[in-house]
Design a protein around this nucleic acid. Structure first.
Lengths: 109, 109
DNA sequence: TGAACTTATAAGTAAACACTTATATAATGT
DNA sequence: ACATTATATAAGTGTTTACTTATAAGTTCA
Protein backbone atom coordinates (compact mmCIF):
# COMPACT_ATOMS: atom_id res chain seq x y z
CA UNK A 1 0.00 0.00 0.00
CA UNK A 2 1.43 3.39 -0.91
CA UNK A 3 1.43 6.58 1.13
CA UNK A 4 -1.27 8.35 -0.89
CA UNK A 5 -3.58 5.35 -0.62
CA UNK A 6 -3.08 5.14 3.14
CA UNK A 7 -3.72 8.86 3.41
CA UNK A 8 -7.06 8.54 1.64
CA UNK A 9 -8.09 5.66 3.94
CA UNK A 10 -7.13 7.56 7.09
CA UNK A 11 -8.89 10.70 5.91
CA UNK A 12 -12.05 8.69 5.32
CA UNK A 13 -11.88 7.20 8.81
CA UNK A 14 -10.62 10.32 10.55
CA UNK A 15 -13.86 12.18 11.15
CA UNK A 16 -15.77 11.85 14.41
CA UNK A 17 -19.15 11.48 12.72
CA UNK A 18 -17.89 8.85 10.29
CA UNK A 19 -16.28 6.95 13.14
CA UNK A 20 -19.64 7.00 14.90
CA UNK A 21 -21.27 5.61 11.74
CA UNK A 22 -18.60 2.92 11.51
CA UNK A 23 -19.05 2.09 15.19
CA UNK A 24 -22.76 1.46 14.58
CA UNK A 25 -21.94 -0.65 11.53
CA UNK A 26 -19.62 -2.78 13.64
CA UNK A 27 -22.74 -4.15 15.35
CA UNK A 28 -25.11 -4.39 12.40
CA UNK A 29 -25.88 -3.14 8.92
CA UNK A 30 -28.08 -0.05 8.78
CA UNK A 31 -29.76 2.27 6.32
CA UNK A 32 -29.53 6.04 6.20
CA UNK A 33 -32.98 6.68 7.66
CA UNK A 34 -31.90 4.71 10.72
CA UNK A 35 -28.76 6.80 11.06
CA UNK A 36 -30.88 9.94 11.02
CA UNK A 37 -32.61 8.58 14.14
CA UNK A 38 -29.35 7.57 15.80
CA UNK A 39 -27.11 10.54 14.99
CA UNK A 40 -27.89 14.24 15.19
CA UNK A 41 -27.25 14.88 11.51
CA UNK A 42 -29.34 15.71 8.46
CA UNK A 43 -30.05 13.07 5.83
CA UNK A 44 -27.88 14.70 3.13
CA UNK A 45 -24.97 15.01 5.54
CA UNK A 46 -25.17 11.29 6.35
CA UNK A 47 -25.55 10.42 2.69
CA UNK A 48 -22.41 12.37 1.87
CA UNK A 49 -20.48 10.68 4.66
CA UNK A 50 -21.56 7.29 3.30
CA UNK A 51 -20.29 8.29 -0.13
CA UNK A 52 -16.90 9.14 1.37
CA UNK A 53 -16.74 5.83 3.21
CA UNK A 54 -17.77 4.02 0.03
CA UNK A 55 -15.10 5.78 -2.02
CA UNK A 56 -12.55 4.52 0.49
CA UNK A 57 -14.14 1.06 0.16
CA UNK A 58 -14.63 0.93 3.92
CA UNK A 59 -18.33 0.13 3.48
CA UNK A 60 -20.49 -1.66 0.95
CA UNK A 61 -24.05 -0.87 -0.04
CA UNK A 62 -26.93 -3.09 -1.01
CA UNK A 63 -30.13 -1.69 -2.47
CA UNK A 64 -33.31 -3.22 -1.06
CA UNK A 65 -36.46 -1.57 -2.30
CA UNK A 66 -36.33 2.04 -1.29
CA UNK A 67 -33.61 1.42 1.26
CA UNK A 68 -29.87 1.24 0.87
CA UNK A 69 -28.38 -1.08 3.44
CA UNK A 70 -24.82 -0.19 4.43
CA UNK A 71 -22.31 -2.68 5.85
CA UNK A 72 -18.68 -2.70 6.88
CA UNK A 73 -16.38 -4.09 4.18
CA UNK A 74 -14.66 -6.90 6.03
CA UNK A 75 -12.28 -7.37 3.07
CA UNK A 76 -10.77 -3.91 3.39
CA UNK A 77 -6.98 -3.97 3.93
CA UNK A 78 -7.44 -1.81 7.03
CA UNK A 79 -10.43 -3.75 8.38
CA UNK A 80 -8.56 -5.40 11.28
CA UNK A 81 -7.02 -2.08 12.25
CA UNK A 82 -10.39 -0.36 11.94
CA UNK A 83 -12.05 -2.83 14.30
CA UNK A 84 -9.32 -2.33 16.84
CA UNK A 85 -9.53 1.44 16.49
CA UNK A 86 -13.31 1.44 16.92
CA UNK A 87 -13.00 -0.77 19.98
CA UNK A 88 -11.09 2.08 21.65
CA UNK A 89 -14.14 4.32 21.26
CA UNK A 90 -17.11 4.37 23.67
CA UNK A 91 -20.48 2.91 22.75
CA UNK A 92 -22.79 5.61 21.34
CA UNK A 93 -25.48 6.97 23.67
CA UNK A 94 -28.34 6.08 21.36
CA UNK A 95 -28.37 2.38 20.56
CA UNK A 96 -30.12 0.38 17.89
CA UNK A 97 -32.10 -1.23 20.73
CA UNK A 98 -33.75 2.13 21.43
CA UNK A 99 -34.69 2.31 17.75
CA UNK A 100 -36.42 -1.03 18.05
CA UNK A 101 -38.20 0.08 21.23
CA UNK A 102 -39.49 3.14 19.38
CA UNK A 103 -40.62 1.05 16.42
CA UNK A 104 -38.20 2.88 14.15
CA UNK A 105 -36.09 -0.08 13.17
CA UNK A 106 -36.48 -0.78 9.46
CA UNK A 107 -37.46 -4.26 8.42
CA UNK A 108 -36.72 -4.57 4.72
CA UNK A 109 -37.23 -8.24 3.96
CA UNK B 1 -10.67 7.89 24.27
CA UNK B 2 -13.46 10.01 22.81
CA UNK B 3 -14.37 10.50 19.17
CA UNK B 4 -12.98 14.03 18.86
CA UNK B 5 -9.67 12.98 20.37
CA UNK B 6 -9.38 10.04 17.99
CA UNK B 7 -10.24 12.33 15.08
CA UNK B 8 -7.40 14.70 15.97
CA UNK B 9 -4.93 11.80 16.20
CA UNK B 10 -6.01 10.35 12.85
CA UNK B 11 -5.88 13.74 11.16
CA UNK B 12 -2.35 14.24 12.41
CA UNK B 13 -1.30 10.84 11.06
CA UNK B 14 -3.36 11.00 7.88
CA UNK B 15 -1.08 13.00 5.63
CA UNK B 16 1.33 11.29 3.25
CA UNK B 17 4.25 13.57 4.11
CA UNK B 18 3.73 13.20 7.84
CA UNK B 19 3.52 9.42 7.45
CA UNK B 20 6.84 9.57 5.62
CA UNK B 21 8.31 11.58 8.51
CA UNK B 22 6.93 9.07 11.02
CA UNK B 23 8.30 6.19 8.95
CA UNK B 24 11.79 7.69 9.17
CA UNK B 25 11.36 8.24 12.91
CA UNK B 26 10.46 4.58 13.32
CA UNK B 27 14.11 3.80 12.55
CA UNK B 28 15.84 6.64 14.38
CA UNK B 29 15.43 10.12 15.80
CA UNK B 30 16.17 12.93 13.36
CA UNK B 31 16.37 16.70 13.18
CA UNK B 32 14.65 18.94 10.66
CA UNK B 33 17.77 19.70 8.63
CA UNK B 34 18.09 15.95 8.03
CA UNK B 35 14.48 15.73 6.87
CA UNK B 36 15.15 18.48 4.35
CA UNK B 37 17.79 16.18 2.84
CA UNK B 38 15.53 13.12 2.92
CA UNK B 39 12.23 14.58 1.80
CA UNK B 40 11.49 16.97 -1.03
CA UNK B 41 10.02 19.66 1.17
CA UNK B 42 11.07 23.09 2.39
CA UNK B 43 12.28 23.62 5.94
CA UNK B 44 9.22 25.63 7.06
CA UNK B 45 6.89 22.97 5.64
CA UNK B 46 8.66 20.26 7.64
CA UNK B 47 8.71 22.45 10.74
CA UNK B 48 4.97 22.96 10.47
CA UNK B 49 4.38 19.21 10.04
CA UNK B 50 6.44 18.56 13.17
CA UNK B 51 4.31 21.05 15.06
CA UNK B 52 1.17 19.18 14.03
CA UNK B 53 2.66 15.87 15.08
CA UNK B 54 3.75 17.41 18.38
CA UNK B 55 0.29 18.82 19.04
CA UNK B 56 -1.08 15.29 18.60
CA UNK B 57 1.67 14.09 20.96
CA UNK B 58 2.82 11.59 18.36
CA UNK B 59 6.39 12.88 18.59
CA UNK B 60 8.60 14.43 21.23
CA UNK B 61 11.34 17.01 20.76
CA UNK B 62 14.64 17.49 22.50
CA UNK B 63 16.76 20.59 21.98
CA UNK B 64 20.46 19.94 21.53
CA UNK B 65 22.46 23.01 20.73
CA UNK B 66 21.08 24.45 17.51
CA UNK B 67 19.30 21.24 16.63
CA UNK B 68 15.91 19.93 17.65
CA UNK B 69 15.92 16.15 17.74
CA UNK B 70 12.55 14.59 17.04
CA UNK B 71 11.50 11.13 18.20
CA UNK B 72 8.41 8.96 18.13
CA UNK B 73 6.44 9.10 21.37
CA UNK B 74 6.31 5.46 22.34
CA UNK B 75 3.84 6.29 25.14
CA UNK B 76 1.16 7.53 22.76
CA UNK B 77 -2.14 5.60 23.08
CA UNK B 78 -2.04 4.91 19.34
CA UNK B 79 1.66 4.00 19.23
CA UNK B 80 1.14 0.25 18.69
CA UNK B 81 -1.40 0.96 15.96
CA UNK B 82 0.88 3.53 14.39
CA UNK B 83 3.78 1.10 14.21
CA UNK B 84 1.56 -1.47 12.55
CA UNK B 85 0.20 1.11 10.13
CA UNK B 86 3.68 2.31 9.17
CA UNK B 87 4.81 -1.26 8.63
CA UNK B 88 2.25 -1.47 5.82
CA UNK B 89 4.04 1.35 3.99
CA UNK B 90 7.12 0.88 1.79
CA UNK B 91 10.58 1.98 2.86
CA UNK B 92 11.36 5.48 1.56
CA UNK B 93 13.65 5.75 -1.45
CA UNK B 94 16.19 7.95 0.29
CA UNK B 95 17.51 6.30 3.42
CA UNK B 96 19.43 7.66 6.37
CA UNK B 97 22.33 5.50 5.17
CA UNK B 98 22.63 7.66 2.05
CA UNK B 99 22.78 10.71 4.31
CA UNK B 100 25.71 9.19 6.15
CA UNK B 101 27.40 8.34 2.85
CA UNK B 102 27.05 11.97 1.79
CA UNK B 103 28.37 13.23 5.12
CA UNK B 104 25.08 14.95 5.85
CA UNK B 105 24.16 13.02 8.94
CA UNK B 106 24.16 15.34 11.92
CA UNK B 107 26.27 14.40 14.90
CA UNK B 108 25.08 16.47 17.83
CA UNK B 109 26.79 14.96 20.83
C1' DT C 1 -51.69 7.57 -11.43
C1' DG C 2 -50.19 9.93 -7.61
C1' DA C 3 -48.88 10.56 -2.77
C1' DA C 4 -45.53 9.03 0.58
C1' DC C 5 -41.09 7.66 1.53
C1' DT C 6 -35.93 6.95 0.98
C1' DT C 7 -31.86 8.37 -0.92
C1' DA C 8 -28.73 11.03 -3.85
C1' DT C 9 -27.10 15.17 -5.79
C1' DA C 10 -26.42 20.18 -6.57
C1' DA C 11 -24.99 24.61 -5.12
C1' DG C 12 -23.31 27.58 -1.71
C1' DT C 13 -20.44 28.65 2.56
C1' DA C 14 -17.29 28.97 6.51
C1' DA C 15 -13.44 26.80 8.36
C1' DA C 16 -9.40 23.96 8.09
C1' DC C 17 -5.45 22.42 5.48
C1' DA C 18 -0.88 22.24 3.21
C1' DC C 19 1.80 24.75 1.24
C1' DT C 20 4.67 29.28 -0.18
C1' DT C 21 8.02 33.26 0.76
C1' DA C 22 9.85 36.31 4.06
C1' DT C 23 11.58 37.04 8.38
C1' DA C 24 12.50 36.39 13.35
C1' DT C 25 14.84 33.79 17.00
C1' DA C 26 18.47 31.35 18.92
C1' DA C 27 22.88 28.79 19.24
C1' DT C 28 27.73 28.14 17.36
C1' DG C 29 32.30 29.18 15.96
C1' DT C 30 35.77 32.49 14.25
C1' DA D 1 31.08 41.20 17.70
C1' DC D 2 29.67 38.95 13.61
C1' DA D 3 28.70 35.58 10.12
C1' DT D 4 26.81 31.01 9.87
C1' DT D 5 23.64 27.51 10.89
C1' DA D 6 19.15 25.50 12.54
C1' DT D 7 14.63 26.21 13.57
C1' DA D 8 10.24 28.63 14.29
C1' DT D 9 6.83 31.81 13.08
C1' DA D 10 4.06 35.09 10.26
C1' DA D 11 1.31 36.20 6.46
C1' DG D 12 -0.74 34.98 2.24
C1' DT D 13 -2.91 31.54 -1.14
C1' DG D 14 -5.37 27.88 -3.45
C1' DT D 15 -7.67 23.57 -2.22
C1' DT D 16 -10.32 20.57 0.53
C1' DT D 17 -13.66 19.64 4.05
C1' DA D 18 -18.08 19.28 6.37
C1' DC D 19 -21.84 21.17 6.49
C1' DT D 20 -26.45 23.73 4.87
C1' DT D 21 -30.88 24.11 2.02
C1' DA D 22 -33.19 22.90 -2.07
C1' DT D 23 -34.34 19.62 -5.27
C1' DA D 24 -34.07 15.47 -8.17
C1' DA D 25 -34.49 10.48 -8.72
C1' DG D 26 -36.24 6.10 -7.61
C1' DT D 27 -39.40 2.78 -5.00
C1' DT D 28 -43.75 1.43 -2.81
C1' DC D 29 -48.46 1.20 -2.18
C1' DA D 30 -53.27 2.86 -2.11
Amino acid sequence: MDYIQMESYLKAIGDHNRMLILKYLMTESLCICEFTELIDMTQPAISQHMRKLKQAELVTEEKRGRWTIWSLNIRHPLYPMLIHLLSLLPEPERTVATLVAEGKKVNCE
